[in-house]
Structure formats: structure tokens, C-alpha cells
Design a protein around this nucleic acid. Structure first.
Lengths: 190, 190, 190, 190
DNA sequence: CATGAATGAGCGTTCATTCAT
DNA sequence: CATGAATGAACGCTCATTCAT
């Protein structure tokens, strides 16, 4: 096994364990044995437990961002692009729930507002969404009386809601088209 | 100091400490000293740490539910009632961010879907929101092509987003009217 | 309930609880509730937990001593007296196993050799047995080549063995006559 | 210091501390410092405090059993074999009083009759003694009117008495020959 | 580089004891 | 006298981190 493989298998082990445990309940002993790596090895690649977990979260976020970035570049019309990107983000959230939980746990803590590396990646995703909305606005399809960043935040919020809340309460997850429809047109009858 | 005061001050201490720490980082020693109570006293009123934290969360939820329940009974028209209730929920979320974090930490853990008491209270809040949307539908103001529970979930999701995301990213929190406007009419221009 | 009753019911509670628990596992909370007495009341009659338990043991020992003392005064011939007394001691041991366990737990600890009050009572029992053996020696029935105190110790030892070991290993308890027969004549064929 | 040494020094530390304290009074902190070992190290070799103490007791018992087993195989005549073995058992008891106290504390607790590993070792010692008595019976030297197991129990009982009672009451410990003599011939004059 | 035995600070929890009522 | 709510010292155990190999 080559060196960088060890780092990777450690990161994967954490995410895997996250599927069945709250993150702060994961023990490094378990991570090491799951990754089939000595416990000391973890400290070769990560400063400490916090750093390890942060990198897990960061890795995941980067992955979505990269995927989404491609779509944003395409020259689809606004609605289609919005739907395509939202679908990607949301299914990523859903398939890697544990990772999103980790992120949430980390961000729940008070301190770390800017200094911490996930923010940068978060910002990148946010900017990508913003770009789409700007395109929509240029196409005259998006409201101008509400600031775009606010609108962007709520799109991401709805996608996260789709990912988390329904499953938690044993409700069927709505189609992504339904979500986008709600986002675009609201709940009001026409 | 009489008995119920001690229990209350313990609950308050936890919530206070939650403002500056992730909940699983709160030490009972600190809770005791913050509440100005002996460490053993905690165990007079709570089975263990988990029980204590669960009661903190439950208490908070019940409080919102009670507040909201009143408004739901009023005979305001749909939009006004929706705004009023949303405002209450959201400002409660905002003023007790630490408590919502606690709730989230608890719900992030795998098991405990129904058995745990917060679910009941959560459901109550959900049902209250649902009632309002039903009224809206009877007034012909709410879409019928999307199931009401789905719409209810997203309202609560947006309120939570308002509470959490903006502050985390140092963006100004949008007015509750803006949020409701987005929720009602979506981002699309008319 | 008159005052001295409280003390008595506390003592009884301890002995009762000793039937199902090792003594050092008994909590004063449980003692108080078993005795139907406030927890503070225990400290009205006993200096502390140690004192309480010591008095329980002492009480029990005194009881046997008193019972045995009567028989020792009787003018039965040696063997009969020996059997009668042994029977009394042993059945007392058996019926109050928990109390004997307490005594054993207390005496297992290093310090307390003389100063502690049970020794006196122990000595009294020992002296009573010694008296019987002296009578036996006067009647010419007891060996003179082995010191009487040694013989006395082993009689008590055998009675304690009868009480404890057999039950612990699920063996039928031998008749007291068998025990005395072994004690008097040994295991050798004639 | 290599691995098995650590386990051994922990076991020895417990036994050493047992000489001056009742066993349930021994704190793991003290065990660790006495063994010159980190507190956590104890948990590398033992499941918990109970397991540690049980292994201490078990170890000791096994040791006597092994020693005694040799002698039982020898082809000495009955009385000599009995004396030799008894001497070994008793001096072991005496030199490891603390360990026997531990055993007693463990066996004093209610449940655990068979399930717990010391029972097996106890049984082994018992069986060895039984073998000697059987030999004695074959040589026509041991009574047949009393069941051998009963006789075996009382031999062990007397040895334990020799170990414990005399020292506790500051009496000189009788010679092992005296004890065996009493056991073989009883207290009666011939 | 890689390991995992060893560590010990730190936590949740218990329970004998106190004292205001 | 009697109570039991309140206390906090003390314990068993965990687990992130280190370091000798």
C-alpha cells in the first residue's frame, strides 16, 4: 500500500463510521482498525482528531463543489441549470448524510467562524449557486426586490432540508422538481 | 432556595453554557458551578447527562409550541397568521440558538427516531404549522398540487435557515416578511 | 413508634439487606428506606457507617453468647453439653449467615485487632467453649497433649466450616453429630 | 520492561496492597502507582476491577493446586502425604493471607456459585485432597462411616482456621503436625 | 514511515455525611 | 427528635496522544 493510500483510507474510515455513529462518539481506535492502519499512523497525516475530522468534511465539500462547478459553466437555460445543479447537490447531501452531519456538528460549535477551512469551501458552493441566480436574473426570471445572496442561502437551505428532515421524520422525500418548483413559485396558488 | 428553583437553575445553566460550547463538550462540573449547585444535585433531578440535556431541549420546544398554539387559534387571515407564527418561531430559534444546536446534536445521532420525547413535541409544532396551511388552502390561497406536509416541512426549514445560516456566515438576517414572501411567492418574477 | 424502636429497626434492616448483598455494597439510603426511617436518623444512633455495621455484628454475637452461656451452666456430661452447645452455635451461624459474613468482612481488614468491640464478644464465645473443654478434661475425656485454646479454636472453626463451605459448594450440610464425632474422634479408623 | 512484566507487576501490586487493606478498599490509582504503571495500562490486561481481582485470586489458587498436585502423585504413605500436602496448603494460605481474604470477599457475595472461574480451581484443590483421603481409605486408615467429601471439607477448613483465626487473635499458630494430629485422632483421649 | 503498548488527564457518577427545617 | 434535600470528595473507566521500537 502506498503512502497516500493510508491517508485516504483513514478519511474513508471516518466517513464510514459516521454512518452509524455521531461523530464525536467515533474513537480513533476504531478509525485506525477500520482503516487497517496503526493508531499512530493517524498522527502522521493529521495534527489531531479535530484536524482529521475537519479534513473529512473539507474533502466532501470540495467534491460537491467540483461537481457543481462543471454544471455552472454549461450554457443551459436558467431553470434547467438550477434543477440540474440542485439535483446534484441534493443527491450528494443524501448519499453522504454522515458527512453532512459531521459538518453540522463542527459548525454547531461557537468559535471557529472564519478561520476554519470549511468556510472557504462553503463559500465556493455558495458562490456557484449565486452565479446561477445571477444568470437567472439576467434572463429576467429572478426577482430583484430580494438580494440574491439571501435567495441563494435559502436554496441551499431547502436542499439541506430535503436531505435531512424528511428522512428523520419518516416522510417520503419529495422529488427535486417539486422542491425547485416550490423554490421558484412558492406555495401560493396562481 | 426551594426545590423547583434548583431544577430550573440547572436547566438554565445548561442552556447558558450551550451558547459558548457544543453541547457534548459541556461538563457537568461546569453545569453545577454555573447553576451554583452541588454536582450531586444534578442527579436528584435528572437520571443522567443525557436525560438532563434531553429535558433542556424538550423544555425549549414545549415553550415555542405553547406560544405558537395561541396564535393558531386566532382568527387572522392566512397570510397574517402565517407571518405572525413564523415570526414567533424564528425569533425563538434565534434567541435560543444554543438550544436548537442541542436538539440538532441529539437528532443527529442515528437511533432514537420516535422513542425519544422530543419527537412528540417536534410533531406538535409541525402539526400547528400544518393547521395554518390548511386554513390557507381553505381560503384558496395555497397550492393543492403539492402535499401540505411537504410545504410545512419547508416552511420550518426556511425558518431554521434564517436562524442559523446567516449568522454563521456573517450575513445580515433577512426580515421575517422577506422570508415569508419568498416562501409564498418563490424567487420568480411575476 | 418509640425511640429505641428506630435504632432496632435500623439494625434489623442492615441484617436483612445483608442476606442479598455483600455488606460493603449496602447503601445507607437503602438501609434507611428498609428501616422506614429518615436517612439522617441513622446518624442519631450511630456515629457512622462503620459504627452501624460493627454494632450489627456485635449484637448478633452477643445473642449467641447469651444463648450458649445458659447451656454451659447446665450439668450435662461433657459430650452432651458439647453437642448441645455446638448445635446452638452452628444453627445460629446458619440462620444468620449474613451476619457472619459481615463479621468476616470486618475482620478481614488489617487494622482493628484489639480495640474493636467485636473482639471482646468473640472472646466471650471462645471462653465459653473453653469452659466446656475444661470440663471434658476434668472428666478425663479430652487430650492433654494439645493446648485447650487450640482445640477450642478448631471446634469453632469446624462449626463455621459447617455453616459456610457446604452451602457455598452445594453440598448437603452434615449432621451436627457427624461434625462432633469428627471433632472428637478424628478421621482415623479405630 | 516487556509486556508480560506489566501484567505481572499489576497482579503483584494488588496482592501487596491486599496485605494492608480490605480488597474492596483498594483503589486502582494505588494499584497503578504501586505497580509503577499508568492507570490505563490496567485496562489493557484486565477487563475491569472485578476481572483484575478475580485473576489475582485465580492465580494464587492455581499456584497452590499445582504445588499440591505434585505431592499427591508421590508414593508416600497416607499420613506422610497428608501432612506434606497440608503443610504446603497451609503455609501457602499463611504467606498469602491477603489473597485468601480476597477470595473470601469474592465468595461472600451472594450469586456467582459456579460461573466464576475460581470455583473450578477450588474444586481442583478439593479433588486433590479427596484423592489423598481415598488412598488413606484404601490403606484402611480412614473411616468409612463418614463420607469422604465431608472429611475433605473439614481438612481444608482446619487449615484455613490455622491460617486465619490464630493470627487474628494473637495466639501462636500451632504446628502443622498438631493440626493433622487433631484431624486424624480428634480431641478425645485414647 | 509505521506501529500499538503505554500513558494519565479528565469525565460521569455514586454515596456517606451534613444541616436547615 | 426526625427528616431528606443538598453536597462534593472520591472513584472507576475512557480515549486522545505519545514514543520506543
Amino acid at each position: 500500500m502506498k503512502t497516500p493510500d493510508k491517508k485516504k483510507s483513514i478519511l474513508e474510515a471516518v466517513e464510514k463510521l459516521g454512518k452509524t455513529n455521531r461523530f464525536h462518539e467515533i474513537k480513533l481506535d476504531k478509525v485506525a482498525s477500520t482503516a487497517k492502519v496503526g493508531k499512530g499512523t493517524i498522527y502522521l497525516y493529521f495534527k489531531d482528531k479535530n484536524d482529521l475530522f475537519q479534513q473529512v468534511a473539507l474533502n466532501g465539500l470540495s467534491e460537491v463543489c467540483d461537481m457543481v462547478a462543471e454544471d455552472v459553466q454549461s450554457d443551459l437555460p436558467f431553470e434547467q441549470k438550477l434543477t440540474a445543479v440542485s439535483s446534484k447537490i441534493s443527491s450528494f447531501f443524501i448519499s453522504r448524510t454522515s458527512l453532512m452531519n459531521l459538518l453540522r456538528e463542527y459548525e454547531a460549535q461557537a468559535g471557529l467562524p472564519d478561520k476554519y477551512p470549511c468556510s472557504t469551501e462553503r463559500k465556493r458552493l455558495f458562490d456557484l449557486v449565486l452565479q446561477i441566480l445571477q444568470q437567472g436574473q439576467q434572463e429576467g426570471k429572478v426577482r430583484k426586490d430580494i438580494e440574491l445572496p439571501v435567495q441563494a442561502v435559502f436554496l441551499l437551505g431547502m436542499l439541506r432540508t430535503r436531505d435531512h428532515v424528511f428522512r428523520r421524520h419518516h416522510m417520503p422525500i419529495p422529488e427535486i422538481d417539486t422542491v425547485i418548483d416550490l423554490y421558484l413559485r412558492g406555495i401560493t396558488t396562481r
